[in-house]
Amino acid sequence: MRFLLITDTFPPDINGVARTLATLATGLKQRGHDVEVVTTLEAGPEEAADAVKRHTVMAMPLPGYPGLRMGFTTTWQMQALYETFRPDALYVATETPLGIASIRAGNKMGIPMVSGFHTNFQTYLEDYALPGLEGVAQGLLRSIHNQTARTLTPSTDTAAMLERWGIHNVGVLGRGVDTDVFDPARRSTALRESWGATDDTPVALYVGRVAAEKNLELLTRAFARFREVHPQARCVVVGDGPKLKSLQTEHPEFHYAGPRTGSDLGAHYASADVFVFPSITETFGNVVLEAMSSGLLTVAYDYAAPRLLIRPGENGLLAAFDDEADFLLQCEKAATSWQDSAQRLAARAAARHLGWQRVIEQFESELITVIPPAPAKDPA
């Protein structure tokens, strides 16, 4: 089969959506399919020679978020690409002008399409000085996704939300984790020492975009609560984003590791002890799965991936959704149990069976299912 994936973000971008789509594209290719990608950024020098072929379109930075881009193309340009590549099905992972033009072209040419809802952008509007437009955004998203045969999203929470909006034929495509990259065995004494931590020093970690929608104000309060219990504790932030400089200025006591990828990222996870994730805007939360696979005690809100993966008191800690007082209480508990090897081993065990292969196989099935059967040949 020939599949075309359309997305504004793809490696070398560093975020959960880009990594997920790269894994899915590579997985389809390894299963014998012809796969190409339409995106907004050229491949980086470190990209493997056998990576999927990409077509790049013009793009501009998202307002207030220069690290991410919005792709632009025309329906005619996408039709020309479809004429050349002849895809059997499209996966449209973006609701920007790139995705809208791609869907229009697909409908004009009768190409089966599956769309993906990867990011709760409608919840970001207030954070980026556009309050009161969430209802408008929901209507636009409903219109876009209902032009495709199927909409995939990573959690049952998000699927239920999309159905309430009136989006039809919603399915859940979960996420996986590379348990070799995210492995407690990557723990590094030297890395911990660079953070000022010894074996007896607890390290609290955050990994993700350093952006308003990640609830950074609560993150700083959570780190502070952690240090109330252990004044010598180290707090580490891994990632980049529009709020990084202001966070560094306001909280120089934290260690800022910048963006990390691959085994280097795995070492940063494994060298910490507690993972603090206060976001309330996730469709899934890949970083929670990565942290648990790395053997960390995770504190998160009770929704999306944490609800699916964490059994409170057994392999992590959950706070009632959007209850800041409860979240800070769970951080206190984590600070007193950061050396609880039973919970950390249980976290690793919960993640070990959640590899990517089952997700890739389901994704392949979802794409094939929307392709109509070939017409029967006339016996004459």
Rank of each mutant, 00 (worst) to 15 (best):
K333T: 15
N315Y: 08
A300H: 10
E332S: 11
W338I: 03
G316P: 02
L354I: 12
A300Q: 05
A305W: 05
G355K: 01
P306C: 03
A304F: 04
R307T: 01
A300S: 08
R352N: 10
A335N: 08
D322C: 12
F321M: 13
A349P: 05
S341W: 02
P312M: 01
A305K: 07
A305R: 04
T298R: 00
R311W: 02
L308W: 12
R307Q: 04
N315P: 00
A351V: 00
A334W: 10
N315L: 02
H353T: 14
D326R: 12
A304R: 06
L328E: 11
E314Y: 01
Y301R: 04
R358G: 07
Y303R: 00
A335I: 13
L345T: 15
W356G: 02
A342Y: 09
F321V: 12
F327D: 04
T298D: 02
Q339R: 15
A346N: 11
G316C: 05
Q343M: 13
D326F: 09
A320K: 15
L317E: 08
L354K: 01
T298V: 07
S337W: 13
Y301K: 12
A320E: 15
G355I: 05
I310N: 12
G355A: 03
W338K: 04
R311M: 00
A300V: 00
D340M: 01
E324G: 09
L318V: 07
A351D: 02
A325Q: 15
L309E: 04
S337G: 10
A342P: 12
D323F: 04
A351R: 01
R307V: 00
A334H: 09
D322G: 12
L309R: 03
Q357E: 11
R344L: 00
R307M: 01
D326H: 15
D326T: 15
A350M: 12
P312S: 05
L345I: 13
N315Q: 07
A342Q: 06
G313N: 14
R352A: 09
P306T: 04
Q357N: 02
